[in-house]
Simulated scan of single mutants.
Amino acid sequence: MQIIANVGIAKSNAVIAMSEARKYDFDKAKTLIKEAHKAMIVAENAHMEIVVQEAQGVQHEFKVLFMHAEDQMLTCQTLMIVAEEMIAMYKKMKILEEK
């Protein structure tokens, strides 16, 4: 659940960051993306603990919930990349509008 909860925080922050960038509030967008990255680190560390345990021979029963957590984590990682690109795009749009 730690993975899902933190990925949810990261995803929400990334989406809100794009919205703030669209309003040209780049400081808020930057803060939200930083918070998204912090939450993703927590999720990725929780995920890595499970992967390391399996590599060390610990047998985990396959759970659909873990598969869902991984799916959410990978989707959010992609969304965060897109969000950062969109923020950069909005910054360039603002510069062009000001000319």
Results as ranks from 00 to 15, higher is better:
95 I>Y: 12
20 E>T: 08
43 A>H: 03
59 Q>K: 15
58 V>Q: 07
52 V>C: 00
37 H>R: 13
70 E>T: 08
81 I>M: 10
60 H>P: 04
56 Q>W: 05
50 I>Y: 08
10 A>S: 13
26 F>P: 04
65 L>G: 04
91 K>H: 04
57 G>P: 03
89 M>A: 08
87 I>A: 05
9 I>S: 15
30 K>E: 02
13 N>D: 05
61 E>Y: 14
99 K>N: 13
23 K>P: 01
38 K>Y: 06
44 E>N: 13
35 E>Q: 12
3 I>L: 00
58 V>N: 03
12 S>T: 08
83 A>E: 08
74 L>D: 06
92 K>D: 07
77 Q>G: 14
50 I>N: 06
33 I>T: 07
44 E>L: 02
27 D>G: 12
25 D>Y: 14
30 K>R: 05
11 K>N: 12
91 K>Y: 06
85 E>H: 14
94 K>N: 05
75 T>D: 07
31 T>F: 03
85 E>K: 15
79 L>C: 05
75 T>Y: 06
80 M>W: 12
93 M>Y: 15
57 G>S: 02
26 F>D: 04
86 M>N: 15
94 K>H: 13
90 Y>D: 04
13 N>W: 01
12 S>L: 00
82 V>E: 14
46 A>H: 03
23 K>E: 02
21 A>V: 04
25 D>H: 15
66 F>D: 12
71 D>F: 07
71 D>T: 08
92 K>P: 02
11 K>D: 14
13 N>S: 05
66 F>L: 02
94 K>I: 05
80 M>G: 10
1 M>P: 06
97 E>W: 11
86 M>W: 14
67 M>D: 13
86 M>T: 14
81 I>V: 09
66 F>E: 06
81 I>N: 09
41 I>M: 03
56 Q>Y: 11
35 E>K: 15
2 Q>W: 10
62 F>K: 15
76 C>A: 13
53 Q>L: 01
87 I>T: 05
79 L>M: 12
22 R>P: 01
72 Q>R: 02
63 K>R: 12
59 Q>P: 10
86 M>G: 09
87 I>V: 09
96 L>Q: 11
28 K>E: 01
19 S>N: 15
12 S>F: 04
15 V>S: 11
72 Q>T: 01
4 I>C: 01
95 I>W: 10
72 Q>D: 04
40 M>F: 08
88 A>H: 15
28 K>H: 02
71 D>I: 02
82 V>G: 13
42 V>K: 06
23 K>Q: 13
22 R>E: 10
37 H>A: 12
4 I>P: 05
30 K>C: 00
39 A>H: 13
88 A>N: 12
17 A>N: 13
13 N>T: 02
83 A>L: 04
24 Y>T: 09
60 H>W: 10
48 M>H: 10
93 M>H: 15
21 A>S: 14
96 L>F: 14
18 M>D: 01
57 G>A: 07
11 K>S: 14
37 H>G: 14
26 F>A: 01
92 K>V: 01
14 A>S: 15
2 Q>Y: 09
94 K>Q: 08
